[in-house]
Design a protein around this nucleic acid. Structure first.
Lengths: 209, 209
DNA sequence: GTCTATATACGGATAGAC
DNA sequence: GTCTATCCGTATATAGAC
């Protein structure tokens, strides 16, 4: 009559391997990672990763899909709020996102990389097509804002800019730290500052010209 | 009495392999590239790449160093001009850079990636330490500008922002095109627009708050 | 210099003992 | 479930003919 307890008993090992895979994959990418690295990082044997996940690629796909879904959901949650103003949404996105990236600074490069390596793969694997941009609350808010303030720039520019200002420092972190000589701690302090600065900058862009 | 003509005679084959390597490496990264791919792309046999370059890694290093040197020189050329204003330098950097990236859109992700994979390697291989930031003309121009306009933000933020606004769209191009549904041609048209827009935005940031 | 054929190493995956 | 030992495909690199 036991439901499915014995599966849960081993969840720990499986989860440890997944966690190890996350670490190694995000650091070295798919091609650069050896299953042996994952095994070592996990503390278990190489054979176990096939026992639990059948293949390197299957394991990778799981990690990647989880990353993207986590990301998409958290963004959608903010972007589709009814009672939050456009400006406030930007503040929330920036802050929430930077927090997450400070904790997992390797994710952006990893994701961008693998999407670049095989763009169609990810479109298939995730239900991203489902979301019709035109129907998002934020899209309507933007339209209203643009009309009221006579903003004529293509909103794609603004989107790119917000994302660029948030993500790029993390993608370029090694170069930035090397060129400026700042420590990881100082870098994170700068990122903390940016939570307040980016929304101000974006506002300034919108009224510029 | 001939200087070194026979070397030049074969420069063509060697150069073709290098060109092929550039293409494949920048598209698939180091780990994702097989020497066979390079051979095929070059039109020559696999054995020739070792004949000319001894190993995959040596060839890769050459490509990477050339990329970075080209980049650094072109930036330094602009940044260290005596008779160009700060604002004008930004315009020149943006325009020059976007032109180059439209032609070679895969370079940024490639470079960022490989630097991330092995940060110290590149610091060693290139004489980048030579340039003392404090002594750059643009640094002094910035100091003067910041004082005159009471700008208090850390200049590292501004640097990151300019680079982010230029580079990020190319790094995120597959995602952007997939999410927005725009074509490559439309994407490039947007990049063309940004040559004018980014300097305006940066100005707006500087006077914001 | 350029090719074909091959040596050698490495990495993903499985068999089978415990 | 977890380990050791091993198989086998694939990729780099080299030997040697032309």
């Amino acid at each position: 009559m036991k439901k499915k307890p014995e599966i849960e008993i081993n969840a720990s090992t499986e989860e440890k391997i997944k966690e190890a895979a996350r670490v190694v994959f995000t650091r070295k990418g798919y091609a650069g990672t050896r299953t042996r690295d994952i095994a070592e990082e996990s503390g278990f044997n190489l054979a176990l990763i096939n026992y639990y996940f059948r293949s390197k690629e299957k394991l990778f796909d799981i990690i990647m899909v989880e990353h993207l879904q986590l990301f998409i959901h958290s963004v959608m949650g903010i972007v589709n709020e009814k009672d939050t103003t456009l400006q406030r949404k930007i503040e929330l996105l920036v802050s929430h996102y930077i927090d997450m990236l400070v904790k997992n600074p390797n994710i952006p490069l990893f994701v961008l990389n693998e999407i670049n390596a095989d763009p169609k793969k990810l479109v298939e694997k995730i239900g991203v097509e489902g979301l019709d941009r035109k129907e998002l609350v934020i899209s309507k808010q933007w339209a209203a804002f643009a009309k009221a303030n006579k903003v004529t720039v293509n909103p794609i520019h603004i989107m790119m800019n917000v994302v660029a200002l948030i993500i790029f420092p993390f993608v370029g972190s090694p170069v930035i730290r090397n060129r400026t000589g700042i420590s990881m701690g100082q870098f994170n302090a700068l990122m903390e500052e940016r939570k307040k600065l980016i929304p101000v900058w974006v506002n300034a862009m919108l009224v510029s010209k």
